[in-house]
């Protein structure tokens, strides 16, 4: 199947430094991809390049079909009513499903006559996502859609996005700082760090091929490939790739998504990427 999003050797310059460098990845259609990394990692840059808001200095990025983008600051006009935002969206887009948008807002209990400024943060996020979906995109790109939302609103926004994915062929790329928000909802992980791509892959597969090992520091972890390690006194705790080591002093378990992400972010030189498949197989 054709990937929904594909970057090849993508490089973006920001003034005299690289905001994104040597980035090659491919996200299959129908996935919900989590884009994580610290501030300045290049997440927004990758999203902007994907939706055509900036031109790469090197390489290319391709979207199969149409992309819709919701920027982090939820770009809505405060003085507009929700209905006026819908009219605005209809005039700005060639593809537009007004009935679906109105139906979605009704389902969410957001009144059309209410001014944007009178909506809660969660409702504003829902309106921004609804407007993006009304253009019937093949790829929905959301920059920090959950930032500044309370836990209930975060849950509601994710619920409605997941329902959209269940309803039709839609690929989602969303960035977040909070990995726990992504654990249940995303099935593809992209980790960026300092403008470099560290991880891109299916989350279940990634978790299956990594282990958290805990044991005495002199124990042998031969046969595994270390991603990162932390040592406390005589005990060491490591994130590794590969089969459980033979040394019986190790306690081995499957990592959680947050442990996997943190492990890679702590050692920027580690990477698990599709085109390195031959190396870590």
């Amino acid at each position: 199947m054709r990937p929904a999003l594909e970057a090849t050797g993508l490089g973006v310059r920001r003034r005299r430094t690289w905001a994104l460098r040597d980035c090659s990845l491919s996200v299959p259609a129908g996935r919900v991809a989590a884009l994580v990394g610290p501030n300045g990692a290049g997440k927004t840059t990758l999203m902007h390049a994907a939706v055509g808001l900036l031109r790469p200095a090197l390489g290319s990025v391709r979207v199969a079909g149409e992309a819709a983008f919701v920027a982090q600051d939820k770009p809505l006009y405060e003085s507009f009513t929700v209905a006026e935002m819908l009219i605005f969206g209809r005039r700005m887009n060639t593809r537009w499903d007004d009935a679906a948008a109105a139906g979605r807002l009704a389902g969410l209990g957001i009144p059309l006559e209410r001014k944007v400024s009178g909506l809660s943060g969660g409702q504003q996020a829902q309106v921004a996502v609804t407007l993006a979906l009304a253009s019937r995109p093949d790829l929905l790109v959301l920059d920090e859609p959950l930032a500044n939302l309370d836990p209930l609103a975060r849950h509601d926004v994710m619920r409605s996005i997941m329902a959209e994915v269940a309803g039709r062929e839609l690929t989602v790329l969303l960035s977040s700082h909070v990995v726990s928000d992504l654990e249940e909802t995303c099935d593809w992980l992209i980790v960026l760090n300092g403008g470099r791509l560290q991880v891109s892959g299916d989350i279940e597969e990634l978790l299956d091929k990594h282990l958290v090992l805990t044991g005495p520091h002199e124990a042998s972890a031969a046969g595994t490939q270390m991603v990162s390690a932390s040592r406390t006194g005589r005990q060491v705790s490591m994130l590794v790739r590969g089969a459980p080591p033979l040394d019986p002093r190790w306690q081995a378990r499957r990592p959680g998504l947050d442990e996997l992400v943190m492990g890679y972010l702590r050692s920027p030189e580690s990477a698990v990427l599709p085109h390195l498949a031959g190396v870590d197989a």
Partner: peptide
């Protein structure tokens, strides 16, 4: 329940269902 019904109540990925 359909995948859509499950994800609408639990906010999980439909592929999981």
């Amino acid at each position: 329940p359909t995948a859509r019904e499950v994800v609408e109540s639990l906010a999980i990925n439909p592929n999981t269902v």
